[in-house]
Amino acid sequence: MTAVYTPFDQGRRAQGSFATKPTDFTKSLRTNVPWQILRFVVINLKMIRVIWKSHH
């Protein structure tokens, strides 16, 4: 079933004003090498788990 759209605001001024934004600390962690080495391991394990679950 299709839904017909209701009006919305495409205005640029409103855009992004209420978007969640990362703090400086969060941004710094994204490229912090020791932290990212740890995340590399964690993310790989999470991905392997999903791949494993998909294959079985």
Binding site: R30, I37, R39, I43, N44, K46, R49, V50
Partner: peptide, 14 residues
Amino acid sequence: NHTFGEIGLAGHWI
């Protein structure tokens, strides 16, 4: 438990 998302340098290496 299997739906996850994260942004960072590790993702780029992957």
